[in-house]
Write a protein that binds this DNA or RNA. Structure first.
Lengths: 129, 129
DNA sequence: GAACACTAGATGCGTGTGCATCCAATGTCC
DNA sequence: GGACATTGGATGCACACGCATCTAGTGTTC
């Protein structure tokens, strides 16, 4: 009984925290760098794991996006010149995604914004609690 | 420096948790009860705070939805007969939203699904950590 | 090696969202 | 009391999403 209430409470708090931060992030990244949150997350993944994988799959694996959403997001990034797609010779169904120089540059710039939003809205929540 | 990493780590974990649960919730509620997550949250708010407020505003206040999203969600709920809108006589711009009998019924049914999804996907995350 | 199942990723479609704007009702100020 | 700002909510629009489906490449089985 009480555990149910606690569960719901937990969920609501998660919901609120997430939306608060996500909303600010989305706005800040978009205004300052023309990136959506998902797009930034993709760039961020690419920067972090610079090994050679059959990207689309692997990206999707540790992200929250659906396969189709990822496909389109990468398409957008490519169109903006932040990323390039190259097909994998070993398995010609696969597609490699790699950062371009400009993509790296954009990510570096956006990272600052990202961190500052997290600092003001994510930490604030913790101390507020 | 390390605090930055911790911050990002925190955010990623929030992001993952949220999407995991939200995705399952959305699906389960939709399949079993024809409700979206937001719609359920609205019903839930209405059940919890059964006082007489000038709803739209107050609903929006402690929810994460934008004003326009809320307006449409309520419109959908009304169309399905789960909620009714009545204009407020005191301030004729305001709109009261109230649960119908069917809305209450639907909420009760959906609540079970809601709790069970939270139990399996929210608690699971905690113990897994 | 031909038929069949499976996998990687792209795409058509319907839908929910935020933003900007609009409309009507309320305040406010002279 | 008439002009102007403000507020509550609805709506047009553009867009990102998930689902289902499609295409092309890869395995498998006989």
């Amino acid at each position: 009984m009480t555990s149910e209430a606690a569960l719901v409470e937990h969920w609501r708090s998660l919901l609120t925290s997430y939306n608060e931060v996500a909303c600010h992030l989305e706005r800040a990244l978009s205004e300052a760098h023309g990136l959506s949150m998902s797009e930034f997350e993709i760039l961020d993944r690419l920067v972090t794991q610079q090994c050679e994988k059959r990207r689309m799959q692997d990206l999707a694996a540790d992200m929250y996006l659906s396969q189709s959403a990822l496909s389109r997001a990468v398409a957008r990034l490519e169109k903006s010149g932040l990323v390039s797609r190259a097909l994998c010779e070993a398995d010609r169904r696969g597609v490699f995604v790699t950062l371009t120089a400009e993509g790296l540059h954009r990510h570096t710039a956006a990272r600052t914004t990202h961190l500052s939003v997290l600092a003001s809205h994510l930490q604030a929540q913790d101390t507020r609690r």
